[in-house]
Computed example of a mutant assay.
Amino acid sequence: MRAQPVITAIGPRGPMTVNGQVAKSLEALIRCGTAGVTALEVASWAYRLGAYVHNLRRDYGLVIETMRETHEGGWHGRYVLHSPVTIIGPKL
Rank of each mutant, 00 (worst) to 15 (best):
V53L: 00
G20R: 14
A35K: 14
T70Y: 14
A46C: 11
V53A: 02
V37C: 08
H76E: 12
A46N: 00
L40A: 14
A46Y: 02
L92F: 10
A35M: 10
H82T: 02
M1Q: 13
H82Y: 06
R68H: 09
V80Q: 05
G14K: 11
I30M: 11
G20M: 09
G14L: 04
E65R: 06
L29H: 03
P84L: 03
P15S: 10
H82E: 05
L40G: 13
V53G: 06
L49Q: 09
A51W: 04
H82I: 02
E69K: 12
W45F: 12
L49W: 02
Y79I: 07
G89C: 04
A28P: 04
I87A: 07
T66R: 10
V6L: 15
T70V: 04
A9M: 08
E41A: 14
L62I: 05
L26C: 02
H71V: 01
P84G: 01
H71F: 07
I30C: 07
Y47G: 13
M67G: 03
M67T: 01
T38I: 08
N19I: 12
N19S: 05
V18Y: 09
I88H: 01
R2N: 10
R58D: 11
G36P: 00
R58N: 08
W45S: 08
M1G: 14
P5M: 08
S25K: 04
A3W: 14
Y52N: 11
T66E: 10
G14P: 12
T34Y: 10
A43D: 12
P84W: 02
R58A: 11
T66N: 10
L81T: 04
G20S: 13
L62T: 03
V6G: 08
H82L: 10
T8S: 14
G33C: 11
R57C: 03
V63R: 12
G77C: 09
G36Y: 12
K91Q: 06
G36M: 08
G77F: 04
